[in-house]
Design a binder for these strands. Structure first.
Length: 593
DNA sequence: GCCGTTTTCGGCCCGACTGTTTTCAGTCG
C-alpha cells in the first residue's frame, strides 16, 4: 500500500467515527486526520518504516494506529478498521470528493436515497429528491449540483508553482484597481513556496472590506462565486481553480498574513503554544484567555506577532510544524539560503550535438555563457545527456566526447580573454543514464574527457527499494561521477519518485564526497523538500541544477532555492554557493583516485 | 487516539460562510 492509500484509509476512519458520534469521538477524529496528514507528508514509504520498526516515529502515529497498520502490512487487512467501517456504504467516500459534500451529507445521500454512482446522483438532483430530504432544500441541492459539475469537468488538481503564481498575479492586478486596497499579498502554499499549489489564497489590507469583497467577486475571469461574506469570499476560475480572499483592517494585517500563510499545522501548533501561555490566537490578533470580552491585541506585521509568542521570526517556507517552533524558541532557526548566494548552475544542456540518448538543448554554449554572466555566475557546467548507447559503438562515443572536450577548452580560452563576463570557467560534464542493472553507458576512456559527471535514472523506475539502491550506488562509485541528479526521478502530477534507501544513499554520499542535486525544473523539484531536510541533517552536500534545455530555463534557479529553503538549507550546504576556487578544491578533494 | 519546558492524565485552534431545523449544523481553511 502506498502512503496515499494509507492516508485515505485513515481519513475514511475519521469519517466513520464522525458518523458514529462526532461529539464523543471529537478528538479521536482529529487524531486520525492528523495521522493521515502525517502519512501523506512522510519522507519514506510507511511500509519501509514498518519494515525497519520505525512506524511510531511518525509524529501523529501512536501505539494504537501503529498496531492496526502493522496488522494491515502483515495480513493485508486490519480487523479494527473493518469493524469500524463495516456499515458504511463505499460510495459515500466517492461523494465526499465533491467540494462542499462532507461526511454527513454523503452518508445521507447514500443511505436515504440509495445513491450508488454519480449517475444516480444526477438522477436524484433532476427528480428533486435531494431538496426533499430533511435538512436540505432547493438551494443546497443546486449547490451540490454546481459543485458536482465543476468536479466532473475537472477534479481539483494541484498546480505547479509558476502557473499558480501567474494566476495569482492576474487576480492581484485586478484587486489593485480598487482604491480601497491598501496592501495585497499572495499567501497560503504559494507564499510558503510549496512544490504544488491547491487553492490560491490572497489577503488584502483595507478599511473598507465589504467594498473590496464586492470588487473581488466581480473579477471578469471568474466562472463562479463560491462564497461572498463581509470580509472574505471565494471564486472559481477556469480550470476549476479556487481563489480565496480575506480582508482585514491595516492595523491587524500582520495577524491575517500569519494566519492565511499557514500551514494549517503550523497555526494549530502556534495556537496550542499560545493557550499554554494563557493567550488565544486568531486571525484577528491575540487575546488574554478565550473570553470574548478581553481586549484584542493587534499586529500590523508578522515579526511583532511571533515576538509576542516568544518566538523568532519564522520564514514562511518552513512553517510546517516540523520543528520550526521549537527552533524559534531556542534561537536555533537556520539562516536560510537565498537566491543571491548562488554562484553557479550545475546542470545545463546546450545545443552542442553529441548525439544524445535523450533530448538535446536548444541554445548554443556561447549564448548560455552570456546568460550565466547576466545572472552573475562565476562558473557553470555543460551537462548534455550521454551519447546514445544503442546508436554508437564505444570508439564512436569516445570520439564524440573528445570533440566536446575540445570545444569546452576553446570556450575556456576565450572566457579567459573576456573580462566583461563574470563567468570564469565552464566545466565539461555530462548527464549519464544509470543502466537498469547498474553501471554506466560511457566507457572509461570517455569518462576521462570529463571534469566530472552527473548520473540519473531515466528508465526502470519501479525496481524494489534495495535493488534500486544498489543500482544507484554502483553508478555513484565511479571516480568521475560527482552528482546524483534528480534523485527520485519524479515528475510532479505525472510520475511517483523511485523507492530508495535514503539513509544508505546519504551515508554513501557523505563518505565518498558525492553530491545530491536539487533539480530546479518546476515539474521536478527533485530532491523534494522533505528529503532535502534529511540530507541537510545528515550533512550531505547539495547542488543546484536548472536542467535548462533552453537558456531561459536558467531562470528556474529560484524554484530550486525555494525547495532548499523548505528543506532548512543554509548557504554552507550547497556547493553552488562556493566561489570558483573553493568549488574546484571541493571537486578535486576526496574524489580523486 | 495522541502527546508532554506543567501534565503518563487531561488536555486537544479558531473563525467564516451558507442554508435551513429560527438557533444551529455542516463544511471549509
Amino acid at each position: 500500500m502506498t502512503n496515499l492509500e494509507i492516508a485515505e484509509l485513515l481519513r475514511d476512519m475519521a469519517a466513520a467515527y464522525q458518523l458514529q458520534d462526532d461529539r464523543k469521538n471529537r478528538f479521536k477524529i482529529i487524531a486520525y486526520q492528523r495521522a493521515a496528514d502525517a502519512v501523506e507528508h512522510a519522507s519514506s514509504e510507511l511500509k519501509d518504516l514498518w519494515d525497519d520498526g520505525k512506524l511510531k516515529e511518525v509524529p501523529g502515529i501512536g501505539e494504537s494506529i501503529a498496531d492496526h497498520l502493522s496488522e494491515l502490512f502483515e495480513t493485508g487487512k486490519s480487523k479494527h478498521f473493518i469493524e469500524v467501517m463495516k456499515d458504511l456504504p463505499p460510495f459515500m467516500f466517492e461523494l465526499m470528493k465533491i467540494p462542499g459534500v462532507g461526511v454527513k451529507t454523503a452518508y445521507k445521500l447514500v443511505s436515504e436515497l440509495g445513491i450508488k454512482s454519480f449517475t444516480d446522483l444526477k438522477k436524484a438532483i433532476k427528480s428533486g429528491a435531494i431538496a426533499k430530504l430533511s435538512g436540505f432544500g432547493e438551494e443546497s441541492q443546486a449547490a451540490i449540483f454546481k459543485s458536482f459539475l465543476d468536479f466532473e469537468k475537472k477534479p481539483p488538481a494541484r498546480h505547479l508553482l509558476p502557473y499558480a503564481s501567474e494566476v495569482a498575479d492576474g487576480v492581484i492586478t485586478w484587486l489593485k484597481e480598487n482604491k480601497n486596497v491598501v496592501k495585497v499579498d499572495p499567501l497560503g502554499s504559494l507564499r510558503r513556496r510549496a512544490a504544488t499549489i491547491g487553492d490560491i489564497d490572497i489577503s488584502v489590507a483595507s478599511t473598507k472590506p465589504d467594498d473590496v469583497v464586492k470588487h473581488f467577486v466581480a473579477y471578469p475571469k471568474a466562472t463562479r462565486v463560491l462564497e461572498k461574506g463581509t470580509r472574505s469570499a471565494s471564486l472559481i476560475l477556469p480550470g476549476n481553480i479556487q481563489v480565496d480572499l480575506m480582508v482585514t483592517d491595516p492595523s491587524g494585517y500582520g495577524s491575517l498574513l500569519q494566519h492565511f500563510t499557514g500551514s494549517k499545522h503550523h497555526n494549530i501548533a502556534l495556537r496550542e503554544r499560545a493557550l499554554k501561555m494563557g493567550l488565544s490566537v486568531s486571525d484577528y490578533g491575540i487575546k488574554k484567555n478565550k473570553s470574548k470580552n478581553n481586549k484584542l491585541e493587534l499586529f500590523s506585521n508578522e515579526e511583532d506577532f511571533y515576538k509576542r509568542l516568544g518566538l523568532e521570526y519564522i520564514p514562511p517556507e518552513i512553517r510546517e510544524d516540523a520543528g520550526e517552533i521549537e527552533a524559534a524558541v531556542n534561537h536555533k532557526l537556520p539562516k536560510l539560503i537565498e537566491l543571491s548566494d548562488v554562484k553557479s548552475d550545475l546542470q545545463i544542456h546546450s545545443s552542442f550535438d553529441i548525439e544524445t540518448s535523450h533530448d538535446l538543448g536548444e541554445s548554443s554554449m556561447e549564448k548560455i555563457i552570456d546568460r550565466a554572466g547576466e545572472l552573475g555566475y562565476q562558473y557553470i557546467a555543460f551537462t548534455e545527456h550521454n551519447p546514445s548507447k544503442s546508436k554508437h559503438n564505444e570508439k564512436q562515443i569516445i570520439d564524440i566526447l573528445k570533440s566536446k572536450r575540445e570545444k569546452i577548452d576553446q570556450l575556456n580560452y576565450s572566457i579567459s580573454k573576456n573580462k566583461k563576463n563574470s563567468v570564469k570557467k565552464v566545466f565539461n560534464s555530462l548527464e549519464i543514464d544509470i543502466l537498469t542493472e547498474g553501471g554506466l553507458p560511457v566507457p572509461d576512456a570517455g569518462m576521462e574527457t570529463l571534469d566530472f559527471a552527473l548520473v540519473s535514472i531515466h528508465s526502470s523506475f519501479r525496481l524494489p527499494r534495495e535493488e534500486m539502491t544498489k543500482r544507484i550506488l554502483s553508478a555513484l562509485i565511479h571516480p568521475k561521477v560527482q552528482v546524483f541528479a534528480h534523485p527520485t526521478a519524479r515528475k510532479i502530477n505525472d510520475r511517483e519518485g523511485v523507492e530508495l534507501n535514503w539513509p544508505e544513499i546519504f551515508d554513501f554520499c557523505l563518505k565518498h564526497n558525492k553530491w545530491v542535486e536539487i533539480n530546479c525544473d518546476p515539474a521536478r523539484l527533485d530532491l523534494p523538500d522533505v528529503l532535502v531536510k534529511e540530507a541537510v541533517k545528515t550533512g550531505v552536500i547539495l547542488t543546484f541544477g536548472t536542467d535548462a534545455h533552453h537558456m531561459d530555463g536558467m531562470y528556474n534557479m529560484e524554484f530550486g532555492v525555494n525547495v532548499a529553503r523548505r528543506g532548512w538549507c543554509e548557504k554552507k550546504n550547497v556547493v553552488n554557493c562556493l566561489n570558483l576556487i573553493e568549488f574546484e578544491k571541493m571537486l578535486g578533494g576526496e574524489n580523486k583516485k
